[in-house]
């Protein structure tokens, strides 16, 4: 997988996490702009999913196992949309905190994806 994309997703996730975390800190629910941000990060996650699947189909196998890699890939694509929907129905600061938590999880998953793929060498 392209290392630059993994790093980009991780950084975008961290930015989203601090943005939503800031909203939670200021006792505000997630607003339209936050949801646009979540949509963009989710889109990046889906792009990553597609590129990774294409590369897997092309015969590249991750260092630490394909099953493990695919599981993390699906988790990475799903976690921001899932927490986004949860914050949609929780119109308090805790909705923002939930969205921030989802973004942090995504960043952690990206680090793990990088490891499992064998980042740097591929």
């Amino acid at each position: 997988m392209i290392d630059a994309l993994t790093i980009a997703v991780a950084l975008a996730a961290l930015a989203l996490a601090s943005w939503c975390g800031f909203a939670a800190f200021r006792d505000q629910p997630t607003k339209d702009w936050h949801f646009i941000g979540m949509a963009l990060v989710s889109l990046l996650g889906i792009v990553q999913l597609v590129i990774a699947v294409v590369q897997l189909a092309g015969g590249h196998s991750p260092d630490k196992g394909t099953a493990l890699f695919v599981a993390y890939l699906l988790g990475a694509a799903a976690c921001v949309p899932a927490t986004g929907f949860m914050s949609l129905s929780e119109r308090t600061r805790w909705g923002s905190a939930t969205a921030a938590a989802g973004a942090v999880v995504l960043a952690v998953l990206e680090v793990r994806l990088f490891d499992i793929w064998g980042g740097g060498s591929a």
Partner: peptide
């Protein structure tokens, strides 16, 4: 599962799946 509980639901969800 509302208010602070929403955050707990999200984290428990992540850990259940993980």
């Amino acid at each position: 599962g509302t208010g602070p509980g929403r955050l707990l639901v999200a984290l428990y969800g992540v850990f259940t799946v993980a």
